[in-house]
Design a protein around this nucleic acid. Sequence first.
DNA 1: ATTTATGGTCAACTATAGTTTACTTATACA
DNA 2: TGTATAAGTAAACTATAGTTGACCATAAAT
Lengths: 106, 106
Amino acid sequence: MSDSSVKKTLGRVVKRTEMPELSKPFSPMQLAKAITAKRTGMKLTLVDVSQALAISKPTLIKIEKGDVTVQLHNVLKVMEYLGLSFSLVSDDIAHSNDEVSDEQWY
Amino acid sequence: MSDSSVKKTLGRVVKRTEMPELSKPFSPMQLAKAITAKRTGMKLTLVDVSQALAISKPTLIKIEKGDVTVQLHNVLKVMEYLGLSFSLVSDDIAHSNDEVSDEQWY
DNA sequence: ATTTATGGTCAACTATAGTTTACTTATACA
DNA sequence: TGTATAAGTAAACTATAGTTGACCATAAAT
């Protein structure tokens, strides 16, 4: 594994993967890597999170692999648990306010 | 509907719902409202998007209602089509004065 | 008043995400 | 070495998301 370092705890072993650049455009892989980075950074195993959130390990692995054929519900649960969140970005050009206009604001 | 206005096109009718505040903390409802706002702002009907993305109308409606029991895949397809995107936010970088989201979706 | 287009719901069915259990692989440390 | 812990995979099964098609309600045109 290239982008991972190894670290030892009291008796535990955790493979730490680095946090991706959050400034770069969103992608499912970026999300996946961020989740893994947060989890390992918090020294939690897949089973730890799996049991805490009542999500199966295979599903968690799907999420951390960037598989998008998972429930939004499960992704959000994991993100909230790990302290990750989304921010919405719209490609529009600064629409002023609620005035009904013929112009397209998007 | 309270937060919607009515506008007429050449022969078409469009209910425009307002874009939510993107600066506020993320929530599934915020996402749902942003999607509806973008779609109606672009003068697209549910069927328009439904057919363009090969997603059924009931599923689209679930998404626009803030239902999180939908595939991440489908949500991302809709967002990309409408020009919406995510930005990842991690709480490890001192978000001292951010308000905590009070709405629970789970 | 009738027609037309849209949003929204519902039921039955299909497709597939998710689960459980077990097994394998890999790493760290004694 | 060998042992223990964690990551990852696979198969069979279950749960449920998603689809189709019909239907209703509303609003806006004619």
